[in-house]
Design a protein around this nucleic acid. Structure first.
Lengths: 329, 329
DNA sequence: TTGAAAGCGCTACCAC
DNA sequence: GTGGTAGCGCTTTCAA
């Protein structure tokens, strides 16, 4: 059943059927009624593919992320999907696993499908600009980078001030009298580096010397946090406060410290990052930095909408994270 | 740049270009070489939309779920996406929020886009069959229901034996000497009901009377679990073991019990369901039922692939959950 | 082995 | 207001 069949049965032309389908142009009420009846009779749905062929758009966008299973990404994706589906778009989700080859494959398919826009979630994607093989494939598709920045004309950014986020955590611990702080550095992305930077800046501001020595490298995650405690304790560095770049690592650290007999927050205080649901599960509940993934998703969606509608829009927005104080400090 | 431009520059016809593009039919090696050079010169990518117009498929599937932010769903989605993207498909994710209207809107768009297949994640979707307005829209699209069953010719199922899952938990606690068990019933879906059923069956099997009275209704989640403890304690029911339908509720229950001075697992044992990452964060770590979301996703993907390729395939598979013993029992 | 031509199902333009 | 028609960029069939 296509538009010709409808036109034939309604005894009119496909042009007129198209008009009533899209509510465009004037149609004699009588004919419109006749067409609408036939439309309903067959529960007719126009082919989005044929339409896309003419209009050059299928009304769909793509979200690329390392892994949807990371709650923080899922929260951002959720908002973007809701926002776009409300406007009749579909959202394709791609898990790149951080691999450049995967990313390139996705970009190729997406460009063949003439996707309307792309959202990149995670600062891992900052390095994309180093791969012309990728950027060239999507040079006429608008791209929003969530918490990242790529200097290309079709790229737009929504940034999260992670440096300030960690600075806020350090400031808070400092105010509460803690001087012997360490930072657990667990993600080698731009965002991870920015957080590390926040720690160093805050330490400098408070005249605490040798801050670099107080940065402990660790693997991300519960296990990583546990092992970080081992490194920390065997390093001989004194500490009464541990600032972490991720909640789950912080929770690992907390577990590790408790296992070694430290009492939280009496002997050691801990802060995490992300305000994840995990931070309410652990005991004590984790003081953390809320980097507002829902707001991030909302702003990305808004920005992409604006770009798609041709509105001139800020090509770069910034989100200010916020401290959430709980039992671990 | 389209296939005509390529043909013109390579001094051949679009038919021949199409042949080298798709590696179909024989092409004179010399001409093939010439075409390939032009293809590379312009980094030409054929339009998937135009191709879709002819082939009636855009090589894309959709996943509908209540909410991607639920880790359990995200894990299932992840596997399906990986499996399909490996075969050149794109995966559209739709968050219905459990609303029938949303679901209907999605189905309409998906059918207009002539999506190749649909995966429904969550037994909430079982009730779909009651809405002909929905099922009629997708009557010629194959649908896989993850952990659900819909009796329609184009619907296929991968089931998780949740009844057995909970039965396993109860059996285990029984073997360890616990007789005073209660069940926290926190999801009014078919799966929730199946779990409740598992509790009742196991209790009956072990000749423990009045099992129905030992089912406590609760809201899902951390808060729900906390409140369930209040109901439980004020109910006067004696208990030394709490079986829960979801990890996060179990963790809420555990928190609530600890707050009231119960020691876990010495005075009360607790089991959860899902083997979520949360179950490793709480303290003590949670004994739980692994319902294998990755396996679920893998089987859904496999089944859908088979259906798409026209292979006759089991229209209904079942996954057996497994007990994971940890510190809470 | 090659190329001309007929669709695929729509939108948009233009003449009536 | 209406309808004919020219595309959109491919795949596929059929003659040559």
């Amino acid at each position: 059943m296509n538009i010709y069949d409808i036109a034939a049965e309604a005894k009119t032309s496909i042009s007129t059927v198209s008009r009533v389908l899209n509510n465009k142009g004037n149609v004699n009420p009588e004919i419109r009624k006749r067409v609408e009846q036939v439309l309903k009779k067959y529960d007719y749905k126009p082919s989005a593919i044929a339409r896309g062929m003419v209009s050059k758009t299928m009304k769909s966008i793509a979200i690329l992320t390392v892994d949807v299973r990371v709650t923080h990404y899922a929260r951002t994706i959720y908002v973007i999907e809701q926002e776009f589906s409300n406007r009749g778009y579909n959202v394709t989700v791609c898990n790149t696993g951080g691999s450049i080859e995967e990313c390139e494959k996705y970009m190729e398919i997406l460009s063949e499908k003439q996707i309307d826009g792309i959202v990149l979630i995670g600062s891992v994607f900052n390095e994309l600009i180093n791969y012309p093989g990728i950027t060239s494939k999507i040079k006429d598709i608008p791209v929003i980078v969530a918490n990242g920045k790529v200097n290309l004309p079709n790229f737009y950014s929504v940034l999260v001030d992670d440096t300030k986020g960690i600075r806020t955590a350090v400031d808070y611990l400092y105010e509460r009298g803690h001087r012997e702080l360490v930072y657990i550095y667990d993600m080698e992305t731009d965002s991870g580096w920015a957080k590390r930077q926040g720690f160093l800046e805050a330490m400098k501001l408070h005249d605490i010397p040798e801050a670099e020595k107080r940065v402990i490298s660790s693997k991300h995650g519960l296990e990583g946090g546990l092992k970080a405690v081992d490194s920390l304790c065997s390093s001989g560095i004194g500490f009464t406060g541990v600032v972490c770049g991720e909640d789950i690592t912080a929770i690992g650290v907390m577990k590790g410290l408790k296992k070694r007999g430290f009492s939280i927050p009496d002997q050691v205080v801990i802060t995490g990052y992300n305000n994840s649901p995990d931070s309410l599960i652990c005991e004590p509940e984790l003081t953390t930095i809320d980097n507002k993934p829902e707001l991030l998703g909302g702003l990305c969606a808004q920005l992409l909408q604006d770009v798609l509608e041709g509105k001139i829009s800020a090509s770069s927005l910034a989100i200010q994270p916020e401290l959430i104080v709980r039992g671990s400090t």
